[in-house]
Write a protein that binds this DNA or RNA. Structure first.
Lengths: 132, 132
DNA sequence: AATAAACTTAGAATTATTCTAAAAAAGGCT
DNA sequence: AGCCTTTTTTAGAATAATTCTAAGTTTATT
């Protein structure tokens, strides 16, 4: 294992060469790339891989909670290096997507009227708007 | 205008026969149907319409804030008769989608850390989980 | 009624994603 | 190391929701 591969580990997931490459590429690209954009990045690297593999790797990483998917409307799925709980802001001026964090100590159930005891396994919050 | 068409009006939108039909069908179907499901419903009615028209009508209705779109992952877009601000709960036991209301007096910015003065034009909240 | 604008339509086109089946790689075992 | 099993990668085909196109129809306007 290479020295700087230590941060590229994901518990419970075998880190193949391709998965590491995809993971690293996403970690180096904060602007929520699509699978195709990551595929383009891979093509420019030393060992290009197929688009199917990019999809497979991303799926495995999402499945193991190492990264997140971002779906805005019907646009191609984007991928997010931030595995922590957060939402997304789609800036309609620039078309870019930013992470939005929760205010400290707050949670979804503070504002949403869910039945007592509901088990939340996942959520997605996307806000469209314009920054001041 | 037929007597019971009064509630099928949408400000600023010309209500053609097809748009009314689609709107009515959605109002009578609370479980967030897809465009294809609505198309199936239309086929069984007196005056069937094309799938393209179902899409066109839904788009016009969404555009005029009469209905809402619901996107869960990459699944086919579903449509929601509830035009008010709300979120969606995707029950992983049943596969069904329910509306979730905000707790009275609360709003997104209570929990999300958005820059002061951000203008929110739209949002989508989807929660996956299991009911107790 | 004539003209222009908006809407509907069938079918083709698009495209992100998934599937398939075969080859390659990785891990375990002796 | 060599053999066997499982997992992963791959190229290309297949899928399917949605959008587009261009022609026909309806509605509004003059």
């Amino acid at each position: 294992m290479k020295a700087n591969d230590q941060q590229l580990q994901v518990p419970g997931l075998r880190m193949t060469k391709q998965r590491k490459e995809v993971y690293r590429a996403l970690m180096e690209n904060a602007d929520h790339p699509t699978a195709s954009e990551l595929y383009e990045t891979m093509q420019k690297s030393n060992d290009p891989m197929s688009l199917a593999t990019v999809y497979n790797c991303l799926e495995a990483l999402v499945e193991h909670d190492a990264i997140k998917q971002v779906n805005v409307d019907r646009n191609p799925t984007r991928y997010c290096q931030n595995a922590a709980q957060h939402g997304h802001f789609h800036d309609q001026n620039t078309g870019t997507i930013h992470d939005i964090n929760f205010k400290p100590g707050t949670q979804l159930t503070d504002i949403l009227d869910l039945p007592e005891g509901t088990e939340i396994t996942d959520f997605e919050i996307t806000i469209k708007g314009r920054l001041p």
